[in-house]
Amino acid sequence: MAETVFAPWDDPNEKPLIRFQNVTKRFGEFVAIDDLTLDIFEREFFALLGPSGCGKTTMMRMLAGFETVSEGSIELAGQDIAAVPPNKRAVNMMFQSYALFPHLSVYENIAFGLRRGNMPKHDLDARVTEMLKLTRLEKFARRKPHQISGGQRQRVALARSLAKAPKLLLLDEPLGALDAKLRQATQFELMDIQEKTGTTFVIVTHDQEEAMTVASRVAVMDEGRVMQVATPERIYEAPESVYVADFIGDVNIVAGQSTPMGEDRYHISWAEGQQPLVAASDRPFTDGQSCHLAVRPEKIAISAERPADVDNAVQGKVLDIAYLGNLSTYYVELPGGQIIKSQTANTRRISRRTFTWEDTVWVSWTATAGVLLAQ
């Protein structure tokens, strides 16, 4: 039997768990969130992604109840949460600093919220044991936070946040303090725990790789506005603006003017004395309209000879080479000064490079390799 794909956002009958409706948040004159409308569904792992100061943490603090909405409304499970105090919301927040109690053991840190909720001892013990097991901390139950590693402290904070079975868990840059390798392992742990508990997670991060790894959908933000909300694949392959294309991963962006060539095809005039580029687009562009062609480096081939039968081929010279072990990125300067990045996988061990600095090369790509963008 085919597995059903989790995509409640595509189902018009699904009711969202969280609904931002025309939410604006001002701090004095400064608009932190600008007329934001957004739905997040139950069991989603939703990422708010953007540069510092784009409003992602403000959104999270409004959900948690630490900030009030200036205009508009936020609903949680169909209820307007404006009047609900933070401690009465079915929402928990895990902070960047983890905020563990240094004098309490791992067990007591996890039990803290449950004790305050007067949970009977027998249930409390069962619940804490379940959380220790979920986060693989059974062996460390008696230790104090300073006796365990950063990654383990992170898991304690997660176990404590999930102990009260919130409907929604907010994670503010939760992996910021971990080193690269541990971050990667922890991302998969987070996904695993989120799936096992079925809790809705909303994570704030400025790390695009993290958002693309963990999230069911990503909201890319800029200056208090959501630029695009989509699955990681859609954000990468079908960005709706130059901002989103540029924010996620590496990309080449060529500016030019479009000329329709029939059947969703366009010629792009982009540089004096250069052949127009060919691009496919199901979005309509008019004659002479300014546009941007965004092409990912891995979709651009590099060769010594001009390739035959290819939609786009431009000659240039190798300006720089970035060797990343599994990949090499070639920076090729075109006659007009534009630099195109081409990325190739290093499948064989490098005995000698095919191309080196200053070599004249051809970069080529198909009409469907890029995305044509209006702004």
Rank of each mutant, 00 (worst) to 15 (best):
R26A: 01
R26W: 00
F27N: 00
F27S: 00
F27Q: 00
F27E: 00
F27L: 06
F27A: 01
G28D: 00
E29G: 08
F30K: 07
V31C: 01
A32C: 03
D34P: 00
D34R: 12
D35Q: 12
L36H: 02
L38V: 04
L38I: 06
D39K: 05
I40E: 03
I40W: 11
F41R: 05
E42P: 01
R43C: 01
F45L: 11
F45T: 05
F46D: 04
F46A: 06
F46Y: 14
F46Q: 06
A47Q: 09
A47S: 15
L48Y: 09
L49W: 05
G50S: 05
S52T: 11
G53E: 00
C54A: 01
C54N: 00
G55A: 00
G55P: 01
T57N: 02
M60F: 09
L63Y: 10
G65F: 02
F66T: 11
E67S: 13
S70A: 02
E71D: 11
G72T: 02
S73P: 00
S73E: 14
I74T: 02
E75W: 10
L76K: 08
L76D: 05
L76R: 04
G78H: 11
G78C: 11
G78Y: 14
G78M: 12
G78R: 13
I81S: 09
I81L: 08
A82L: 09
A82C: 02
A83I: 03
V84Y: 06
N87W: 09
N87D: 15
R89K: 10
N92T: 13
M93R: 13
M93D: 07
M93Q: 13
M94K: 11
M94S: 13
M94I: 15
F95I: 08
Q96S: 09
Q96R: 10
S97M: 04
A99N: 10
L100R: 09
F101P: 03
F101Y: 15
F101A: 06
P102A: 10
P102F: 11
H103C: 04
L104I: 04
L104V: 04
S105M: 09
S105H: 10
V106Q: 08
V106K: 08
Y107W: 15
Y107P: 05
Y107K: 09
N109D: 07
N109L: 13
A111K: 11
F112Q: 06
F112Y: 15
L114K: 13
R115F: 12
R115V: 13
R116H: 14
G117T: 09
N118Y: 08
N118A: 15
